[in-house]
Each structure stands twice: as C-alpha cells, then as structure tokens.
Amino acid sequence: MTALLSEELLSTIGRQSEPRREIVTRRDIRKYAVATGNRQRKYLDGDEAPPMFHVPLFWDVVELDQLTPDGVSIDSLLPKFPLEKAMAGGLKIEYLKPVYPGDWLTATRTLTDIYEKQGRSGALIFYEVVMDITNDDGELVIREKTTRILR
C-alpha cells in the first residue's frame, strides 16, 4: 500500500478479461494495410497480416450507448484510479508467429501491475496490461504489454 494505492486497488492486479476469439480475414487485412499507408503488396493484397494487425483485430467493438460523449469507451479491466490524466504510454510487442487470413486468434488481457512513482511534478501511477494472443493450437502468437502513466 502507498499514499495513492489502496490495498483494494492493488488487489485488482491479476484481473483478467474474458478471452476474445476473432477470425483474421483478407478484407480486414487489406483495409488495415491501406489505412496505414503500407506499401508492401503481400499486405495490400491481404495474403498475410502486417505486424500490429492485432491492434484493430482486438480493439473493443463497443456499442454506441457504451461510448462517452467524447467518443471513448471505458476499459472494464481497469479499476478506478485516484489519478486520471493519462500521459504518454509505452508498448512492448513480441511477435512469435506470422498471421494469415483464415487464422482464428484468441486474446486474453491481464492487468499485470500497478505501481506508484514520484515524478518531477508529483506522484504518478503506472499500470501494465498484457495481452496474450494464441492460435487454436494454444500456441502464443503475439504478446503485447502496454504501460500507461497517470498523473
């Protein structure tokens, strides 16, 4: 327990989302490749998914009434933090296997850490979410760790 982080808040570490299973389609790959300005034919044709294709694949398809007037959705994996202003975050992504159209992938998100640090202008809260993406054989395909900072 620290000044900002109560036992109750820290007890949410380890919380896990329901696994989400999605299919990779050629059309979705092509749309992503075009929208990102990709210049490689294999992605523009949808023959293989480019890295980071898991970002749109597993972005929450929230319903209209779940969006705030600002157009954002609440991440139900996260507890209510005593600091709310989000600062720049970081990402670490490991790519273990290529992704092709027709693949079924399953993502599970886990809140893996919450900690406090003293910044130059006051206390900061850090939290980490790991998303493990596996194929239907149970093999890890992509692991993504997001670190966000609140002030």
């Binding site: 490689q40 480019p50 970081g90």
Partner: peptide, 30 residues
C-alpha cells in the same frame, strides 16, 4: 498506434523478405 505502425513499416521496408520483426518496444512521447 498509427505512429507505432510506421516504425514497423520502416523496419520491414528495410528488411524486405530477408527477415522478420521479432520484438519492438516504443512509446508515444509527443
């Protein structure tokens, strides 16, 4: 995340078909 994607494209256009990205760590600072 679009800026993150461009980091990947920078790497992949350099790699061509000779290799793959196995890991990346980046942050959106500005």
């Amino acid at each position: 995340p679009l800026l993150g994607d461009w980091l990947h494209q920078c790497l992949e256009e350099w790699l061509g078909e000779d290799g793959r990205i196995t890991a990346i760590e980046y942050s959106n600072r500005i």
